[in-house]
């Protein structure tokens, strides 16, 4: 009998080794973690106050955010509006240009169509004539003369018709062009007139304002009499400040003239002038004439 004890022992040793390898704890034993006792500086918090503060802060933040949002919105809105307006402008202009182009195209098309039609009609006529000629050529030569006369007449008529059609076509073309020009000029004038109206209103406003300020600052001298009239020229700076003021037309009385110039200098600046569009300012307000003419004086 074979003895199995040795292999059995060897197997057990190997298994035991393997088992111990597996089950051994390779990790070093962890050092005892000495954690510091958690201590914190605590203060009594009034949760309600805190909550209120927080709420207040939040509200402020909210309000600020709101304001910002609103401002943002407003800005966006105005931007949008501006953009929209511009877009609308552009769109309108584009639409107008398109419409014009379309019209032109249509006129062109119509012309071409007419031309094509004319050509087709022309061809048809010619074909008919050729057929008739061939048929009649076989007929009696007596008819040849009549035929020739008829042909001549027909040819003449045809020429006249063509000429008339040609003239008609040319006239229509010119009319269409003139119409177009008129329309464009009218549009331009209208746009300019509208712009002029707006600036006129602004100028009128500013003039009333200047008049009110000067009526407050003018000291009418005791030697002024009804009927005296002086014109002062004012040079404004874009900020509304008076750059220069001097007599443009004298009243004949030196004290009256002085009082008029002094009225402008006493006022010193007209802040609302700064709000006027720079182009309009340059055109109408850079130099302004003011007439001083007192009414209802004693003497």
């Amino acid at each position: 009998m074979r003895s199995y004890i040795l292999p059995f022992l060897l197997a057990s040793v190997v298994h035991a080794a393997a088992f111990s390898l597996i089950s051994m704890n390779w990790d070093r034993p962890a050092e005892p973690v000495r954690s510091a006792p958690r201590h914190i500086q605590a203060e009594m918090i009034d949760l309600k106050a805190l909550a209120q503060q927080q709420a207040a802060q939040e509200q402020i933040a909210r309000q600020q955010a709101e304001q910002q949002r609103k401002a943002e919105e407003a800005r966006k809105r105005s931007e949008r509006e501006a953009v929209e307006q511009r877009q609308q402008e552009l769109a309108r202009k584009q639409a107008e240009a398109d419409a014009r182009k379309r019209e032109q195209q249509q006129a062109e098309q119509k012309r071409q169509q007419e031309q094509a039609q004319q050509k087709a009609a022309e061809q048809k006529r010619q074909a008919d004539l050729a057929a008739r000629k061939k048929a009649e050529a076989e007929a009696a030569r007596r008819k040849a003369q009549e035929q020739a006369k008829r042909e001549a007449e027909a040819a003449k008529r045809k020429a006249e018709a063509t000429a008339r059609a040609e003239a008609e076509r040319r006239k229509q073309q010119q009319q269409a062009e003139a119409e177009l020009q008129r329309k464009m000029a009218a549009e331009r004038a209208e746009a300019q007139a509208r712009a002029e109206q707006v600036s006129q209103a602004v100028i009128g406003d500013i003039q009333s304002y200047i008049q009110a300020v000067l009526q407050d600052s003018w000291r009418i001298p005791s030697t002024a009499r009804n009927g005296m009239e002086a014109v002062v020229a004012i040079h404004f700076l874009p900020s509304g400040e008076v750059d220069q003021a001097y007599i443009h037309t004298s009243s004949g009385n030196a004290q009256f003239d002085s009082s008029a110039v002094q009225a402008v200098l006493r006022a010193r600046s007209f802040p609302r002038v700064a709000d006027v569009d720079p182009l309009l300012f340059e055109r109408r307000l850079r130099k302004l004439l003011v007439k001083f003419r007192p009414e209802g004086l004693r003497w």
Partner: peptide, 29 residues
């Protein structure tokens, strides 16, 4: 027609109203 339109526009541009001051303060200097 073009000339007429131009004239109209030019007139609008020139319409210049002078500011008239008719009241003040009657005060001694």
């Amino acid at each position: 027609f073009a000339a007429f339109t131009l004239l109209l526009v030019a007139q609008l541009a020139q319409a210049e109203l002078m500011v008239e001051v008719t009241q003040g303060v009657e005060a001694p200097t």
